[in-house]
Design a protein around this nucleic acid. Structure first.
Lengths: 158, 158
DNA sequence: TTTAGATAGTTGCAAGTGAGACTATCTCGC
DNA sequence: GCGAGATAGTCTCACTTGCAACTATCTAAA
């Protein structure tokens, strides 16, 4: 009889680990800064890229549904963490960028999150961490999740 | 200025990959067998263990909220895939086990899922797959996710 | 034995999310 | 230029889920 041990089944393990790690990190930006996960993803995308991005671009990068991003953007606008710039070339879309307030929050939050990531990975040696990242990358590539890490210009006709 | 590249940030990558892999697999049991993820987790737990389990135990193993498991159990009962056995020793709890119909579904589904897992991991060599599983295990251990893989008897006083 | 507190499972409620309709705008071919 | 189809972003709806309250039952201690 065919059997499957859920605890050795990689899809289940990835899902469980992803949820666990996300929960561990979200306490950092939720409780402390009032951001939820989609809001954090918008901030992270804007913070990493220097140019202003469209909501669409953020949705593609983070693999988050556009309606979820739209709600996150609305909330961040209301809290004064980001602002919208009209795009004269295409009036359907808006370019988004962080305000000074948003930048300040970002600068304070990032080191905390990086520290948390290091804590989570501290059970691995430096060599193992590297290898883990490499293997993750191979799987991401094969599932075509790489699009996200390509520069903006390759994703869309920017 | 501190920066964080979302696409090199392991928590984000794990979360995204987990969601992606889950989605790929769930099409297998959703479209074909009408199971959702919590229902599949109940079936997987019952199928792997030979004895009947309580809902509580399944919730702990799979790290799924007990109300979610409760709803999944109700649905599986309605579809005749599992059955409940009263526990004379403790009338608060029920032992759950698959019906013949449930077993038949399980037997048909498992090979498909294992094949899918292999497809997803086919981008890695045998050696890499082993190493990936080992590293996943180390992280799970350090996050105390291991409870799930301990035998039933260690989790609860069974 | 009685009672307080723990535990198994269910359910109502509120929050979050994806699908898809919708509006406004753009692009391309005629 | 004009109309068909594509695209950006918003909004409504339905669904899922976690939380917390609730019921029933068990355990332990006075």
């Amino acid at each position: 009889m065919a059997k499957l041990d859920l605890f050795k089944f990689v899809p289940f393990r990835l899902n469980r680990l992803g949820a666990e790690v996300s929960a561990a990190l979200s306490s950092e930006y939720r409780a402390r800064y009032g951001l939820d996960i989609p809001e954090w993803r918008v901030m992270a995308t804007l913070g990493f890229r220097n140019e202003a991005c469209s909501a669409q671009y953020i949705a593609q990068c983070t693999r988050t549904h556009k309606s979820t991003i739209s709600r996150a953007v609305t909330s961040l606008l209301e809290h004064g963490l980001i602002e919208r710039v009209e795009n004269a070339d295409d009036r359907r879309e808006f370019r988004l960028r962080m305000t000074h307030k948003g930048q300040a929050l970002y600068e304070e939050l990032i080191p905390r999150l990086l520290r948390r990531e290091q804590e989570i990975l501290s059970c691995l040696t430096a060599q193992e961490r590297k290898e883990f990242a490499r293997l993750l990358g191979k799987i991401e590539d094969s599932l075509d999740l790489v699009q996200a890490s390509r520069p903006m210009s390759e994703v869309e006709a920017y």
